[in-house]
Write a protein that binds this DNA or RNA. Structure first.
Length: 152
DNA sequence: GCCAACGTTGGC
DNA sequence: GCCAACGTTGGC
């Protein structure tokens, strides 16, 4: 069982949208490192933080579970879709996605600022400069520490 | 809206 | 296969 942090822009799709939808496919991954990670390392039942990026208050807003294995991202075949990719062929899909299931919103937002202020989390990928991966793995230790911050 | 950091592309 | 140019991400 692994833990993840998954970024999305709330203007595009945020935690409240997932709360409403209950489950949704996490499409639009167009980075090979991230694709390989969801293909090789992610499993059904893994837990993930829903992180809001590129917004007024970047940070962790909620929890979700991974609800499927990686499967072809059909938005890559759709010429009208934002993330259409001419290189992805239906017979040989270049891009994958997983389904995520809403668990709950955090009682309070754990902001990026707060994450950065904790020396315990200095190893975490999201707090490191120049990290641009939309999905990163979170260690069990960091996962539990972050959840403990919710109670403070 | 700026810009640093990083990934991708493509000429050679 | 190198690397400059370009595009994207995302915090600020």
């Amino acid at each position: 069982m692994k833990y993840w942090l998954m970024k999305n822009e709330p203007e595009d799709y945020g935690i409240d949208d997932l709360k409403k939808d209950k489950t949704e496919h996490w499409d639009g991954i167009r980075n090979y490192q991230v694709r390989n990670m969801i293909r090789d390392d992610m499993s059904i039942g893994d837990m993930a933080f829903f992180y809001h990026s590129n917004c007024e208050i970047p940070g962790i807003y909620g929890l979700m579970t991974i609800n499927s294995k990686a499967y072809p991202d059909h938005t890559a075949f759709d010429k009208k879709a934002k993330y259409y990719d001419i290189k992805s062929d239906k017979n040989k899909p270049a891009w994958l996605m997983v389904d995520v299931k809403y668990k709950r919103k955090l009682q309070k937002i754990i902001t990026l600022k707060e994450l950065k202020s904790k020396k315990e989390l200095s190893e975490m990928r999201v707090v490191q400069k120049g990290n641009r991966l939309s999905i990163t793995e979170v260690s069990k230790k960091d996962w539990e520490y972050i959840l403990s911050l919710e109670k403070k």
